[in-house]
Amino acid sequence: MTKTVEVAREVEGRLTATETLPATERISRPAETPIIEVEHFSAYYGAFRALHDVSFQIPERKITALIGPSGCGKSTLLRCINRMNDLVPSFRREGKMLYHGLDLYAKEVDAVEVRRRIGMVFQKPNPFPKSIAENIVFGPRVNGMKFNTAELVERALRQAALWDDVKDKLKQSGLTLSGGQQQRLCIARALATQPEIILMDEPCSALDPVATLKIEDLMRDLARDYTIVIVTHNMQQAARVADYTAFLMMRPDRAGELVEFGETEQVFTQPRDKRTEDYITGRFG
């Protein structure tokens, strides 16, 4: 919490933003190797354009936060990374989404293969109405992985900092857990398929503050091994956990666009775009 206060003070102290950044200067390229490169990416639902020409790079084994006012397309962008939007019948996109340099939307790419490498955790915890162990085992099983069930379950639950809470009740339904535990079970479930990237769509919005802090600690731990992309409407959360932050906003035609992308510290303390500054100082949104 104190860090947030500091950040907020600093923001007030040195605001240096120019008016509106020209498109070419909206991103600062991360120093690390990018794992996802978004290139001139636009998304449509039917005639409605949800994302307008988004370009930036998501660095490997870092936490990248997507922030912005509601309706700015941050969830759409997130769901484009593991092709969950393919499930929406009217969905269409333009531009490229590169993963290790491979276009995720290339014709021969299978969305199922993409999703087992790029896992996802949802806004509301959605454990399967089955036992805790079965929740963990499902992903590896459908992906045809070879595993020892006991080891796999324990490792995934330990990684998600849930093992001590549930080790005696692995056969209980996942629905008997508290909200925060359910969400960590969903994270454990995603980890069990050994993904490289974990997408989190406002993972704490349904949780209380204590559970939220636990998940945030967990994210920091996981960032040593995994790339994490998190959508959040909570700026403090982005400031607390993210290494990089992308700020999106709605254009007048209601399509979302990327306003600014950079290291979290820079985006929050020295925003280069006036709109970012307005947003993080709470002048709108």
Partner: peptide, 19 residues
Amino acid sequence: SIREGALALGSTRWQMVRY
């Protein structure tokens, strides 16, 4: 949300339906 959860773990549509 159950369907999305299953698909996000890399299950095919049929696996999602079946399980």
